[in-house]
């Protein structure tokens, strides 16, 4: 009897939690869908950001994502290869592993501070795509390393032994046998980190993001608008908050959609190749 009540309670609580979490998404979708139009996605904000669209912010986020992946992907994958294929189990490797885990736990605003002091001020990039991309790249690094390591771990040792026994060198084994087999899972990690990076606000506050910029960036040393920062700005500091609300809902919906699409692609890849 007691058990029935408690389990019933757990069930109700679980469904309540799931319902709450999804009502958030539902709410944004419901309110935002009306704002989405071709014009909204392809034009610049006008009239004190109460009208027009979010095109510069979409472009800005696109550049930042590309830039950060150019930084994080090669380093992250190479680091993952080192950890799984080369590193033994010594003290040095243990330290690296702990540091990688810890880097993932550092708040994004701390990355923002670091990026500001190193890239913006010390290296004199200014508020720019390159400074923002480098900062976001560092943030995405732990995720890519972890996924790469796990992807490599799931490749059976018989693959490696077979290749080595045929006379291939270690590098050839990794490049021609292990990496191709692990590739789909590594791509999954890349796509998930794209979803994560495109929604980060705090790291780009002081390294890349512009409040309002009517023209598109022409070089990597230009400031850009970005979707998450744009949402923050129009949600909190517009001159006419009520009039900007539809724009804010629309921006939030675009952000959520990006995350959803990235997750769907990742799930699809994972399912397709996990046989």
């Amino acid at each position: 009897m007691k058990q029935a009540i408690i389990f019933w309670l757990f069930r109700v609580m679980s469904f309540a939690v799931v319902a709450i979490l999804f009502s958030i998404i539902g709410f944004i979708v419901f309110r935002g869908i009306g704002a989405i139009s071709w014009e909204f996605l392809t034009s610049e904000p006008t009239d004190g950001m109460t009208k027009g669209g979010i095109f510069p912010a979409i472009v800005g986020t696109f550049y930042l994502v590309i830039g950060s992946m150019l930084v994080a992907f090669p380093i992250g994958v190479m680091s993952g290869i080192y950890m799984n294929e080369y590193a033994g189990n010594n003290f040095f490797v243990k330290i690296i592993r702990i540091m990688t885990n810890n880097l993932g736990g550092i708040p994004s605003i701390v990355f923002g501070l670091f990026g500001m002091s190193l890239f913006v001020n010390k290296l004199n990039f200014g508020d720019s795509i390159i400074a923002g991309s480098l900062t976001l790249g560092l943030l995405a690094l732990p995720l890519i390393i972890r996924v790469t390591e796990e992807a490599l771990k799931s490749i059976p040792d018989s693959y490696r032994h077979g290749s080595l026994a045929l006379g291939a060198t270690k590098l050839q084994t990794i490049g021609r046998v292990v990496l191709p087999a692990a590739f789909p899972n590594i791509m999954t990690g890349l796509i998930l980190s794209i979803g994560r990076v495109s929604g980060e606000t705090a790291p780009i506050l002081f390294t890349a993001a512009a409040y309002f910029l009517p023209k598109l960036p022409s070089s990597i040393y230009d400031q850009v608008m970005a979707l998450p920062y744009h949402l923050y700005v129009i949600a909190t500091s517009g001159t006419d908050l009520e009039a900007t609300r539809p724009m804010a809902y629309g921006t939030a919906l675009v952000l959520i959609t990006i995350v959803l699409i990235m997750n769907l692609i990742a799930n699809f890849l994972r399912r397709k190749f996990s046989k």
Binding site: I75, S79, I81, Y86, A87, M99, I106, F111, L113, L171
Partner: peptide, 27 residues
């Protein structure tokens, strides 16, 4: 080539440690 790549992998492997050190130094 083997040696070159192994060094690159090793270097990338220590990047996270270097970043954490740099962050603490800068902050």
């Amino acid at each position: 080539l083997e040696f070159l790549f192994e060094s690159a992998f090793r270097l990338s492997g220590s990047v996270t440690t270097i970043i954490i050190l740099l962050i603490s130094i800068f902050l």
